[in-house]
Amino acid sequence: MLSHMGSRLARAGMLALALGVPLQAHALFGDDEARAAILDLRKRFDAANASQSQLIQDNAQLRRSVLDLQAQIETLRGELANMKGVEEQLTRDIAELQRRQRDMSQNLEDRLSALTAPEGGASAAAADTAASAPSSAAAPAVNPQKDFDAAMAVFRAGNFSGAQKSFAAFLKQHPKSPQYPAALFWLGNAQYATRNYKEAVNNFRSSLSMEPSGPRSAEAMLAIANCQIELKDSTAARKTLDDLIKRFPKSEAAQAAKDRLARLR
């Protein structure tokens, strides 16, 4: 019996030994797979961390780009606002220039209507004098009024450069003509129209000195002030306008002078 039990124990030990060997090998094989799985997991984790870091960097770069874009947009808005302000100022300047041009044209038309009538009367008087005077076959035909009227026709046609030449020729040819102050006056107007303001002032003043209280005196003073305004000499322009209002308070030129003073002050 003991022999039989020993035999059974031996067989059991051998079976256990036989079973133990593959179990140990299986355990060793399982550890290798676990290590490989852990290493793979670490690689994936590191890759995920790297991707996350890159994503964070890309996100930060995108935010900086957005901020830069917003700054550029604000800069453009400021520039557009400035351009809009400049455009509005230019529009106002153009409107003011157009208004001044209309005023100048209207004043010129008014002066032409008011001042050419006396010249027509002078023409008739000169014609009567010429008809009553004895003719002289030896003397050449000199007609200052005809030359003056021809120069006025050039002026009315809007040929201001030609009008300057015509009036200058008249002044040279007829220095003692009754139309001499008027020729100075209209020469000044032609020079004003071509922006030759300094020469225009000289001729307006010469006309005014020859006829201090003549039919064109108030208009000459107003024209001088207009030239001074164009020359940016506001102080002189205000003085001229004040003098005009004092000397010719009831004239149309005085009313225009008051309007110009209101804009200058």
Rank of each mutant, 00 (worst) to 15 (best):
E96K: 15
P144K: 03
A36F: 00
V86F: 11
M5D: 08
P140M: 07
D32P: 00
K84E: 12
R42K: 15
L67W: 04
R35V: 08
F29E: 14
A141R: 14
G20I: 00
P215W: 07
S135F: 14
I229P: 00
R102K: 12
A25V: 09
A137E: 12
N49V: 15
I224L: 01
S234L: 11
A153I: 01
Q145C: 04
I229H: 01
R195H: 03
R156I: 11
A18F: 09
M83R: 10
A117V: 12
D68E: 11
A190W: 05
R260K: 11
L9D: 10
S51W: 07
G121N: 13
N82W: 14
S51N: 11
D149K: 11
P249T: 13
A27R: 08
A141I: 12
A126E: 00
A95F: 04
S113W: 14
Q89S: 13
D40N: 06
Y192E: 05
L69I: 05
S161Y: 04
D31Y: 14
D46L: 06
S177R: 02
N143D: 15
A133M: 13
M221Q: 00
E211T: 14
L76C: 04
S53L: 14
S206W: 04
L208Y: 10
M5Y: 03
S123I: 05
I224Y: 01
R260S: 06
I229S: 03
R8I: 12
A253Y: 01
A163F: 04
P175D: 00
V201T: 01
D31M: 13
P178L: 09
R35H: 03
S209L: 02
I38N: 03
K232V: 02
A153L: 07
F160G: 13
A125P: 02
S3M: 07
L62G: 05
D243R: 09
I224H: 00
A190I: 06
Q179K: 13
E230Q: 13
R216D: 04
N143M: 08
I56C: 05
D242I: 06
F185Q: 06
I38R: 05
F170L: 03
A47M: 03
M83S: 10
E252C: 02
L222R: 00
V142G: 03
K246N: 09
L171T: 07
I94Q: 15
S207H: 09
F167L: 14
A169C: 06
P144H: 05
N196R: 13
V142L: 10
S234W: 11
Y192D: 02
G162V: 01
G158N: 06
Y192P: 00
E87M: 14
A262F: 06
R100H: 09
D103C: 02
A36M: 06
F204K: 00
L108I: 11
A37G: 07
A223G: 00
A131P: 02
D259H: 02
F248C: 09
A190V: 04
M152G: 02
S3H: 11
G78W: 12
E119V: 13
V21W: 05
D149P: 01
R263Y: 03
L231H: 10
L187W: 07
S135T: 12
A225D: 01
Q101W: 05
R111Y: 04
L97C: 09
R265K: 14
K250T: 11
N143K: 07
S136P: 02
G78I: 08
A18D: 01
K84L: 09
F185E: 02
P22F: 05
G214P: 00
L28Q: 15
R111H: 06
L112R: 09
R260F: 05
M210L: 15
A81S: 12
